[in-house]
Simulated scan of single mutants.
Amino acid sequence: MADLYEDTRQQAGKHNLKNQWFAAHGIEVERRKLDFGDYARTDGFSNIVIDSKQDMQEVAGNVGHDHARFVRECDRAAEAGYRLYILVEEHPEYADRDLLATWVSGVCRRCRKCDPLESKCVARRFKPLNGPTLRKIIDRIEYDHGARFLFCDKRDTARVICDLLGVSYLK
Rank of each mutant, 00 (worst) to 15 (best):
M1Q: 00
M1P: 00
L4Q: 00
L4E: 02
D7I: 06
Q10M: 06
Q10A: 05
Q10G: 04
K14H: 01
N16I: 11
L17Q: 15
L17I: 11
L17M: 14
L17W: 15
K18Y: 12
N19D: 14
W21R: 13
A23W: 13
H25T: 13
G26Q: 09
I27L: 09
E28F: 11
E30K: 11
R32A: 01
K33H: 07
K33W: 04
L34M: 00
L34N: 00
D35Q: 01
F36D: 01
G37P: 01
D38T: 06
A40C: 03
D43V: 02
V49H: 02
V49I: 06
I50P: 04
S52Y: 09
S52E: 09
Q54H: 12
Q54W: 11
Q54F: 11
D55P: 03
M56S: 12
M56A: 10
Q57N: 14
Q57W: 04
V59N: 07
V59G: 09
N62A: 15
N62G: 12
V63K: 09
G64E: 00
H65E: 15
H65G: 09
H65V: 08
D66W: 07
F70H: 00
R72H: 09
R76P: 01
A78V: 01
A80E: 04
Y82V: 02
R83E: 06
Y85C: 02
Y85V: 04
L87Q: 10
V88C: 14
E89T: 09
E89D: 14
E90Q: 15
P92Y: 12
P92N: 13
P92Q: 14
Y94C: 07
A95E: 13
A95K: 12
D96N: 15
L99Q: 15
L99W: 15
L100R: 08
A101S: 12
W103Y: 08
W103D: 02
S105C: 10
S105I: 04
G106K: 10
V107L: 15
C111R: 10
C111K: 11
P116I: 09
L117P: 03
L117H: 08
E118S: 15
S119F: 10
S119L: 05
K120R: 15
K120W: 13
R124K: 13
R125V: 08
R125M: 11
F126E: 15
K127F: 06
L129I: 08
G131M: 07
P132A: 09
L134R: 05
R135G: 05
K136F: 05
I137V: 08
I137S: 02
